Amino acid sequence: DLSGKLIIKAQLGEDIRRIPIHNEDITYDELVLMMQRVFRGKLLSNDEVTIKYKDEDGDLITIFDSSDLSFAIQCSRILKLTLFVNG
């Protein structure tokens, strides 16, 4: 049953990962930690990372904090994230 699940599709460069999320109350910090685990070796804990999501118009919107993240989650059951490393 995928109805209650949130799917995160995260892209870093050419690498795209699909991550099912069971807890929608994820904070921004938890998201960043999850991305560091998912992209281990490509995304380091001291990297400056910018996370953006695609909205319904196809625009890339920056996620700065947990309220941005929860808004993005409300918009779509499949959250398409693009990561930019400013390392």
Rank of each mutant, 00 (worst) to 15 (best):
D1K: 11
D1T: 04
D1I: 07
L2N: 14
S3R: 05
G4A: 12
G4Q: 13
K5D: 13
K5C: 06
L6H: 12
L6C: 07
I8C: 05
A10S: 00
Q11F: 02
L12I: 05
L12P: 00
G13P: 00
G13A: 05
G13F: 05
E14C: 12
D15C: 15
D15R: 04
D15V: 14
I16E: 15
R17Q: 14
R18Y: 15
R18P: 15
R18E: 15
I19C: 06
I19D: 00
I19W: 04
P20V: 14
P20A: 08
P20G: 09
I21G: 03
I21N: 03
N23T: 13
E24H: 07
D25M: 14
D25K: 12
D25G: 07
I26D: 00
I26G: 00
Y28A: 01
D29E: 08
D29V: 08
D29A: 07
E30L: 04
L31H: 00
V32M: 11
L33G: 08
L33F: 07
M34D: 03
M35D: 00
Q36C: 08
Q36H: 10
R37G: 09
V38D: 02
V38Y: 11
V38R: 04
V38T: 11
G41Y: 07
K42N: 09
L44F: 08
S45I: 08
N46M: 10
T50R: 06
T50D: 15
I51Y: 03
I51R: 00
K52A: 12
K52P: 01
Y53E: 02
Y53W: 05
E56Q: 14
E56P: 13
D59T: 14
D59Y: 13
D59H: 15
D59G: 14
T62E: 15
I63F: 02
I63Y: 00
F64K: 15
F64A: 04
S67C: 07
D68N: 03
L69P: 00
I73F: 07
I73Y: 02
C75T: 13
R77S: 08
R77K: 11
R77G: 12
R77Y: 05
I78L: 10
L79D: 07
L81V: 05
L81I: 07
L81N: 03
T82C: 12
T82Y: 12
L83K: 00
F84V: 14
V85W: 02
N86L: 04
